[in-house]
Write a protein that binds this DNA or RNA. Sequence first.
DNA 1: GTGAAAGCGCTAACAG
DNA 2: CTGTTAGCGCTTTCAC
Lengths: 342, 342
Amino acid sequence: MQLETATIKTIADTIGLSLTTVSRVLNGVAKKYRISKATEERVLAEADRLGYIPNQAARNLRLKKSFAIGLVIPNLANPFFANIVSVVNQVLHERGYSVILTDCNEEEKLEIEAVNALSARNMDGMIVIPSGRGKKHLELLRQKRTPVVFIDRYFEDLAIPYVATNHYDGALKITEYLIANGHRKIACLQGSNHVMPNIKRVQGYIDAMKGHGHDPFYIGGNGFTFESGYLETKLLMQRSERPTAILALSDTILLGSLKALAEDGYRVPEDISIATFDNSVYLDFLACPVTSVSQPVTDIATIAIKLLLDKIEQQSTSGLTEQEKILISPAIIYRSSIASIP
Amino acid sequence: MQLETATIKTIADTIGLSLTTVSRVLNGVAKKYRISKATEERVLAEADRLGYIPNQAARNLRLKKSFAIGLVIPNLANPFFANIVSVVNQVLHERGYSVILTDCNEEEKLEIEAVNALSARNMDGMIVIPSGRGKKHLELLRQKRTPVVFIDRYFEDLAIPYVATNHYDGALKITEYLIANGHRKIACLQGSNHVMPNIKRVQGYIDAMKGHGHDPFYIGGNGFTFESGYLETKLLMQRSERPTAILALSDTILLGSLKALAEDGYRVPEDISIATFDNSVYLDFLACPVTSVSQPVTDIATIAIKLLLDKIEQQSTSGLTEQEKILISPAIIYRSSIASIP
DNA sequence: GTGAAAGCGCTAACAG
DNA sequence: CTGTTAGCGCTTTCAC
């Protein structure tokens, strides 16, 4: 059992053939060059015996293709993103690509570093969920002709395709549902106020309220975090005019909000109604199961990959067509966290 | 704005210096070769102007070092693993390594493919949470001298370091806590019965029962899944002799179990007590907050990386020392899901 | 049917 | 203080 890694040269030497022939056999183009069956089998047998694994760095350098897709996401600890990564990973591996992951911890600085690092590694394509507002690092990728697609978060003014939930639509519908149940004092607990999903969701909330002749009651919070939900709810319930319902713009915010409500002795939905985004699996098992907007994660990931691989394979320099800005309308999963009030 | 990617040669040509000098400056060893400040600045300025990013494939090929760590995990949709990946990612990026991720969907076949693919990409090291029972693909890595460390799941008979929760200890303690609260009919809902964490946890349960003079009441289930928890609980509650307590060996199992209990009208903890492993953040917000064994994820990930980077940097061929099998005792987080019974 | 040789971008002796 | 050169492992013209 040799300790040296087997290379094409090792194989060529041991069976007395040239590098070229070995390479051809190993690349499955034997018949194209009319290499004899006997030779082919000898090569294959020897490669197997030596446990030959092609050196990807060399292929990468030579072919200017890495068979790898970069994945840049804000935060893996958030189950919503973890799910996306899980699906993306699976589909990509089936197609023979490796996935290089970076978790940016919602920091723009890390995102820029990540994009550059991936660029250095010659990604064949990238899927990014931007953490920040900056776009320059993303535009640089166009220079390098690296196909990119956004998932979930996106920039409308960039010529980069995106696939996302129709956040506006989801927020509009769920707010209207609250209104239909008699709620007027609906507080909206937002996430990071610069990212598109949040902007669209807040807009949906506002438009639903206004559309039914109400002023938006309250918009607060500053991150898709447990802490933001907790603090904001604590503050909210101190106000002279309390809400009858809370719309949390993510499940992480929801959990923080629920903790604050429980601490202060408010019951859901008797004292206050609540609704959320993301539809995490545990919503069914909370003290009061929570009605939620459900994002079509699998669909989003699958479509995004299809878009990306199309771009990679055809390398079309054609402009952005209308189909490449894709929004998928979410479903609402009704549970028991919303009470009808007079 | 040029479309061609800048290389060291591009820079050298435009400012009329040699590749070597440019390379040296860019690698930060300018002073070592006493390159003049002026030259250094010209190089840096030009690199910046051209948006130069070093080609990692070339470095990799040349240095036989990829500055990348392979991460092989069973299933990202499981928040416990997602957390590990999140922490690992963060620490590794701080140290200048990229992370190549593979989600094996708990399938051994995918795990083997993943390990080989990563091997082809010359990983400097690998962190793996094995999905399967097979070890051959892991042993091959030793040939290539690729450092590996296991997290969470491990093989005791392999000369590969591991860092994991002391699963046995956690199960023992929480079972004893149930017994101390008067429970005798404690059902254990297990995960994949071939993986080490499960085996150790079940053993802890058995030993706690026997240690207090009781026979293990019931052991069932076949995976760390929602479905297994659900089905097993349904079956369990049909038995003539019902348990007074359930020990779910993961939070995913717990959620399934809770769903079954709720469907059949059992209240926690009035009708039945329950305890779990993993301590997911949402446990606090369930209908009844659930007492749980809390795994020290951050510690585990941090220690594992330290071990791995040590191995990578010193390339010690020394044998496995005692410190390289590390088990960390978990804490128990007490909530209100366990009732005292007479 | 098979092989020789060039070159992808980079680093590191070795040579001044 | 700076440059020349070889070579990492692979694919691919071009040649026989």
